[in-house]
Nucleic acid binder design. Structure first.
Lengths: 344, 344
DNA sequence: TTTAGCACTCCAAGCTTAAGAGTGCTAAAG
DNA sequence: CTTTAGCACTCTTAAGCTTGGAGTGCTAAA
């Protein structure tokens, strides 16, 4: 199908897409013939555009309107026609300055901030999936008694994650008893990924441990709880109100559906996850996305790494009429930034 | 002003408010005369309504439309006319079941969940201000070394808050050295509220400590950081999309302004803070709110306590046309619940 | 003091109209 | 064979107009 487009058709398709991205209005033949250095009359362009419509790249909202790109048209544009955007020094400035103003230490902070920057640099909504804690390997566990009843459990992974949780224990445990349990667990769990530390494994260990010292129901509950809580990965959003600026969302009902979607973290997670496992940047246009509520949207995603492990996904979501080249450039930069600042 | 309303006017005002809350349409004299057991003709009602308009309790959107309550009208209704709502067993069920399904341990979880429940029980947007950590008193500090470079700092307050933070230290400190610092700090800071632990106090301690043992720049940075981070209180939102269901927000521009507001935590904090310091439930109608963007909204707030200290604020935000009695009832229940589950 | 009746006002919804943008087709020109 | 000019036609959008209904205020009678 790609082969069937001659140079002139490509130029015209590109002109329509570029123009439509900017104006959000159907593009007429006259506009194309005048504005894009094409030494052809509008009539000729009209003929070509009619062809492009037959081929499925363009569509008319109604007879006697200009054309707008179809999903296929965008796809062709992204794959074959798009010029990559050099970030303007303005954007460059905005991005790098807002990212580096403060040294941020906490992962959550970094990601939250990134989401904000990404959305404001693209004028779209951004989604960032937090690091996938589950893929990290268990390194060791420590327990710090706080007072008679409470202890702080600290879980450390090979990628440098540190999760901690306060737990309460009905039964008092001596420092020594605690230490025994902790040592046992460290020995058994070392090197497993968090995913692999299943409830059944924990139950097994529990049985095992009961045989030897018969105290520690509570110590296990804590472990189970710490893990369970981390099962659901957090998705950070930025600029959710940006979609309201897009003319394609002037309908309250569409807005509601989108915002509703944004409130459902598991769904967002699924949407992002569907795209991942690629190395570079992925562009999913319209119905290429699984989820029905974003069939009129484009999702552009990239993945970042922590310690060379694929770790999380960054996404920008907006209407299919999106400034692809710009968003892709910003995304590149963002992924780089995350790789750097989370990598260490 | 209150005294000037005779019984009949009160009944009519009440009827208009109640009706308008349900229908969101201007209420005509005929509607009032028929529906609310008033044995008066519409003409009589008309006269009374004209009076109520002169007094500032009602207003006509245009000549020859029914009346709708003014801000003053709502105020009078809330202060003098409102029947308190017995929660229907349905609501009762929804609320108590969704709150008690799981034992939640983390404060953040409890609050987040509460926000969700509150918004769905009221069909409005809910805001909950997290506990004001700053008002708690410092109890003690502990440090748990994790590996050569990192330590976990744990801060415990008298109200049972436990904050922890991982810090990195360039310089290695021996367990002994660390312990010395920690002991010193615990002694000096004990009993102060977190608010009182200012940067200047820290600097003072720092100087003091330097004189005796000259190591611990890092140890202080950590303390400063832990505290700074907690300065901004988190506001939890629930049901932000509920405002989209209200007919008064069918305008995209209004929606944008509201959602924008919701994205700015410091503003929300300020809005909630303005209402607090009361013991019971506070109703702020329309322009009674400071912030201009919610001049067409009503904010109903309550405060909850942890360990008998006033601790945070719960709010429901919606258009001035709001089911006051229902929201207030739900709010009561919510505050009770929070007092119970955070109190221990 | 209350009520019935009536003229009047105003909005909302539907319809009509005119302007403008853009097309498809045809026939002529290159 | 390709390109272009010209023209009739289509469709949308905005503005103006019409109409029905809801609700009022006023007056006069009960």
């Amino acid at each position: 199908m790609t082969a069937t487009l001659n140079e002139r058709k490509k130029q015209i398709l590109k002109a329509v897409v570029v123009n439509y991205i900017v104006t959000a209005e159907p593009v007429g033949s006259r506009t194309v013939s005048r504005s894009h250095r094409m030494d052809l009359s509008s009539a000729t362009i009209r003929n070509e555009m009619a062809d492009l419509e037959d081929l499925g790249y363009l569509i008319q909202p109604h007879t006697s309107a200009g054309r707008i790109p179809t999903q296929l048209g965008y796809r062709y544009y992204v794959d074959n026609l798009m010029d990559l955007d050099d970030l303007s020094s303005d954007d460059e400035l905005v991005i790098s300055s807002s990212l580096s103003v403060e040294k941020m230490r906490e992962i959550e902070q970094i990601i939250n901030n990134s989401a904000r920057v990404l959305s404001s640099a693209t004028n779209q909504t951004s989604l960032i999936m937090g690091p996938q804690f589950q893929k990290s390997a268990f390194h060791h566990l420590r327990i710090l008694p706080l007072d008679e009843k409470r202890s702080l459990v600290v879980l450390i992974t090979d990628t440098g994650f540190i999760k901690n949780k306060v737990i309460e224990m009905q039964q008092q445990l001596s420092q020594h008893e605690l230490q025994q349990v902790v040592n046992y667990l460290n020995q058994k769990l070392y090197g497993l990924t968090i995913d692999q530390v299943t409830t059944s494994l924990i139950n097994e260990l529990k049985r095992d441990l009961f045989r030897r010292l018969e105290i520690l129901e509570q110590a296990f509950i804590l472990l189970e709880e710490s893990l369970k809580e981390e099962k659901q990965i957090r998705v950070f959003l930025g600029g959710t109100t940006n979609i309201l600026n897009q003319p394609e969302f002037k309908d309250v009902d569409k807005i509601r559906r989108m915002l509703n979607l944004f409130e459902q973290e598991p769904l967002l997670f699924k949407i992002l996850e569907d795209t991942s496992s690629e190395d570079d940047i992925v562009v999913k246009i319209g119905a290429e996305n699984e989820h029905e509520d974003i069939h009129e949207c484009t999702l552009i995603t990239g993945t970042y790494k922590i310690h060379d492990k694929t770790s999380g996904t960054v996404g920008v979501l907006g209407p299919t009429r999106m400034d692809y080249s710009h968003v892709i450039s910003v995304m590149r930069r963002m992924v780089n930034y995350l790789n750097q600042s989370l990598g260490s």
